[in-house]
Design a protein around this nucleic acid. Structure first.
Lengths: 229, 229
DNA sequence: CCAGATATTGTAAAACTAACACTTATTGTT
DNA sequence: AACAATAAGTGTTAGTTTTACAATATCTGG
């Protein structure tokens, strides 16, 4: 087999935007870099793709290495390849995003040593980011805004059992606008993808709300159809 | 500056899906390869990215080299990076699509010598394609189906002056279903992006239809809003 | 039992969608 | 000049979806 030799040094990497939802705010997982270039800067978690893994596999591996999390569906959304984007050579980056449940069972395991620390940061209070990561982030946020309007993916950010008000909050925070409570509930329930658990919220000092669970089986039927908010 | 050396030979390419519309059919531009691998196979036009060009620039260059066409908006839609996708090494491909007016002023100039020939081929009669190009094509077609439902991009496939029936044909062919004539016209005109040219079709042996032009200024206002068919 | 906090519920007007068929204009033919 | 052929052009109605809007119910803690 004749190998095609690249005419110049080049390679490709994955960057991940991990969205989380906590205390009524949309968060993104950032790491503080411990190595040059951009030492001490905040950045999206990412890494070079290895020889024997596909892009999707690479994204899963990187997510796992950086967070300990497995079995999360990540979606590729864009590839960033401006000439000067990486100071150490021609490296293009394939960007993925995922939406995670924070807290609960899946706490974040320590991050590999290439980062000083990792934190969930409110998307409204982002620090200056390394490389072109601000651009990547902005585009990722736009992507989930569009997606959440058409597919009921907001569940992925919530604990397994959640109230309709919590769900509405997710929509409001991502879309950046208030929604009408009655209309939201009517519409959401009409999709028939929420299972009423006949169970109430606990530990609140006011009327407890009904808990719901996302019904994957029914979701399959909805998938493909378009919904909107 | 410390260069990051890739740990293995790898590089990246662009593949373009060029959609055209002719004789009531959706077409795609394919080349017949003149070199190994996949010599004599049909393939999407594509090439390696050069050192000093961004991905977008590379896509424009490749489009120009292969078709002589310039100033067409191409949109990146996905990056294909399975391990075995290219028999000559680890080459991932960033895929773009564009919608072109066929015929008229912009005839295709001869293709560079790396292809035996290039042809516009009906998307319903595709030959077996090289590499993973069938997969790339399928995904590109899905993409424009989704996009045409939400943004009035069908114009890009038509000559500058067109009739409503021609426009409806584009929608029907891409969406793969018949649309109601009255409802289509009502809706399309309600977007206010078509300028009535007070001019009639010529050379037809039946009642001549009114010609319209796409109004870019008004389109700007619509953009962002969602429409649907 | 009262105050505070949030959950839960319905209705009416407006906008949009979907279904449906006949008349008009033009050309070419007899 | 009539007419056959062909596609252009046009409205209405019923059904569905969206929007706007506010009072009552439930629970907790003091």
């Amino acid at each position: 087999m004749i190998e095609v030799l690249p005419q110049f040094n080049s390679t490709f990497s994955i960057d991940c935007i991990l969205f989380g939802f906590d205390e009524g705010e949309l968060k993104v997982l950032l790491i503080e870099r411990n190595e040059e270039p951009f030492k001490d800067w905040w950045a999206l978690p990412g890494n070079l793709v290895s020889e024997n893994e596909s892009l999707d596999q690479s994204a899963s591996r990187i997510l796992h290495e950086l967070t300990g999390i497995e079995n999360v569906y990540m979606e590729q959304f864009y590839t960033f390849g401006d000439v000067g984007r990486h100071p150490q050579g021609r490296i293009i980056s394939v960007a993925y995003y995922a939406m995670l449940r924070l807290g609960g069972d899946k706490a974040l395991k320590p991050i590999s040593n290439y980062a000083k620390q990792a934190h969930w940061i409110n998307v409204k209070e982002l620090p200056k980011l390394a490389f072109d990561h601000q651009k990547i982030f902005d585009q990722g946020l736009e992507k989930i805004k569009r997606r959440i309007k058409h597919q009921p993916i907001a569940f992925e950010l919530l604990p397994e059992k959640f109230t309709l008000t919590q769900l509405q909050n997710v929509y409001e925070v991502i879309l950046g606008k208030k929604l009408d409570k009655r209309n939201f509930r009517k519409k959401m329930l009409s999709f028939n993808v929420l299972k009423d658990l006949n169970e109430k919220q606990k530990g609140v000092s006011f009327r407890a709300a009904t808990l719901y669970r996302f019904d994957k089986r029914k979701y399959g039927k909805l998938f493909g159809k378009e919904i909107s908010f």
